[in-house]
Design a binder for these strands. Structure first.
Lengths: 205, 205
DNA sequence: GGGTCCGGAATGAATGTTCATTCAGGTTGC
DNA sequence: GCAACCTGAATGAACATTCATTCCGGACCC
């Protein structure tokens, strides 16, 4: 069944709805946004929205999955996980940066806190799968001695990801504006956080 | 007017309400939580709640101010901003850690995204004032050459804060469990992110 | 017994969801 | 080729529910 009839994907309503929902959710959160504005923004009747999504919760899950999947694709498509650690790190950072810059609403939406209350299984799975490439990068770096072996991989990811998000969140909230060179400096700083510093063993205290 | 009569602060309802509200908001967000559950959790009638807070929004602002103020106090009370950079950094980190451990709900609440929609002026002021001690620490460290001079202070704060939050957020979401020694390793990693690395100038790329 | 405080049922506005109706396009019968 | 008919997507007004806020009867002090 290649393309059902001639018409069909003329405008693809579910996609339009998901896109519209993403923007409104990113702005006001799930509970902060009524359904009608979403429909209006998508150029669709409210009833139509319910033809494609069982209820509001199913819609957020669709938005979440779609967005997370796009982030994952953007992060991993065609990436060579065997590049040297630092190059791989830079590559991931650049891709993250690119995504955050091109999809501010997506990024903002993904970083909302209350997702856990309503995510279904499929959404969770995508959520987790995003961590894979970052974990690979860390482990590989630790094996070849470039990354701090004492830093647990999951903590390294949380630190790296948290720092990255922190910068873009601060920018989104108006605390700062970041130029491209600032981003490079920040990237290097993140790298310093996770890399191996052989000389200084006893820096604690 | 020292203490109005004998009774009065027998149990202090506003405080109980704020405390209850904090926990429920931290769990479901402002728009995700109805008022009655807050009242119930505070052991108070809904009407009573409205005796002390003009409306729901005023309540969130009170919660926000109270929480942020407590964090700020916990972070700055009796701290000597002239300690050497690394010691000051450790001190701040320890205090942050302590606060996050003792008040998980507070921390979770403060990191919610949609605050900006309803914060009033007073709340904003407290919000900003929290950045002061961290900014001091960065600037002082840069002046005495210990911290990376190329990293803008506001970005350094965002990175440091983001990394810190990232770890606790990951733990709150069940992605990891952190022991005390892991926290120390993470602290050192954060320090590496912002400190000056004189040897390696051209690490970019 | 007058004043203050409290509680939670009552109220009405806002919001998620449904469903009777419309309508565009395709199909059938001539 | 042209009606009459059929189909199912689309719609938005109507409905049911949820929720913020009010308000009045009662409790508790002086």
């Amino acid at each position: 069944m290649p393309a059902p009839q001639h018409l069909r994907n003329e405008d693809n309503k579910p996609d339009r709805i998901i896109k519209a929902a993403l923007e409104v959710f990113a702005e006001h959160g799930l509970h902060g946004t009524p359904v009608p504005p979403i429909a209006r923004k998508a150029g669709v009747g409210v009833g139509t929205l319910y033809r494609y999504f069982e209820n509001k919760e199913a819609l957020v899950n669709a938005v979440f999955r779609d967005t997370k999947q796009r982030l994952k694709d953007h992060l991993t498509d065609g990436v060579d996980l065997n590049e040297p650690s630092r190059a791989l790190f830079n590559e991931l950072w650049d891709r993250l940066t690119g995504f955050a810059r091109q999809n501010p609403a997506a990024f903002r939406f993904l970083e909302m806190q209350d997702h856990h209350a309503y995510l279904d299984n499929d959404s969770w799975q995508i959520e987790r799968s995003l961590l894979v490439p970052m974990g690979m990068m860390i482990l590989q770096g630790q094996q070849n001695g470039l990354l701090n072996p004492q830093l647990r991989a999951d903590i390294a990811i949380a630190l790296f990801w948290g720092g990255f998000v922190g910068i873009f969140k601060a920018e989104a909230q108006g605390y700062l504006t970041i130029g491209d060179s600032d981003l490079l400096t920040a990237r290097d700083a993140c790298w310093q956080a996770i890399r191996h510093h052989p000389k200084s063993e006893g820096i604690t205290q």
